[in-house]
Amino acid sequence: MDLHPAPRADARQGNRALLVCALVGLVVFVGSDALASRSDWLWEVVGRGASGSENAAVMLEARAHSLAQEPPLAALVMGSSVADADFTERALAASLQVPPARVAKLWMPAMSDVELAMLAPLVRRLRPERVIVPASPFVMLGGLRWDRTRAYAPEVAWRLFTPRELFTDRVEHLSRAFASTHVIVRHRRELRRVLLGDHRDITALPPQGERPRVGEQIHALERARQGDFRCDTVHVRALEIFAQDVRATGAELIIASAPMAGRSLAGSAASSERLDACLESLSLAGARLRLGRDRPAFEHDDFRDLIHLDRAAAERFTRWVLEPAPNAGRPPHAL
């Protein structure tokens, strides 16, 4: 072993070699991402590898990729299973007088508003004319659980979280930020599952954390008490950021208070009023609000369960959301 320090010239050569290695790595990383994210084959494989609610984010992204190949959408509905249940493509297309192909829904079971905000870059890619988001009392419930958060965008996280929150959860942020920069890193599980076979046999599927379930939100609502609904949650902040990002794309954002069955506290008139007040107090960058107090009444029979409308009621709700705003001509909220 040579114990003498490298002469300055040798050290300079070493630094140069390190720089070249880093550059080669960077070019490969960036180049492979650029190639892969434009590849229809990759998205087809990823779509095949994803299944069930645990891969909902993957399926959502794959669907967004295919939508990006089509002409811009007239309306894009985003949110949780409520977005899927409470809106119908037929009513959307009829209300907007466009072909059904020009409306779409991008949803994930139990999607939180933090996840919604993290998906804002997709809106930038799709450039829809309007984005519709159902709002429910969930936005005022609870904090953030990383094991339930399936989407991440560093530029959103940077604005959504305080420096203290970013530092406290730095491991989570750094690893998610890294994964979000490369499409293969993000979808390697699905790729391996398709390329190597069933995960129990061959792929290195990581131990999955407990995944959000559709019924979970319903249970959360059933357990919630009046004091649990607050207008200062991370999800409320996320909704504001999402509104700003949609505004930046030039699309109109419609936030519609979704009806809840009256059997729970969340479905009560008091909760609906509280949600209205909360939405009105936010800086939503000119989003059009469709508030609970203006909404037609929905009876118990209109619901499949506590939070999801049946099809007929969903048609009515969709049409109401797209009616001309009652406050048209007045300045938008909280501009």
Binding site: M1, L3, P5, A6, D10, A11, G14, R16, A17, C21
Partner: peptide
Amino acid sequence: QIEHDPVPDRRGV
């Protein structure tokens, strides 16, 4: 090695 306070050359890198 510590006492020599090394910096790697090209091979070391």
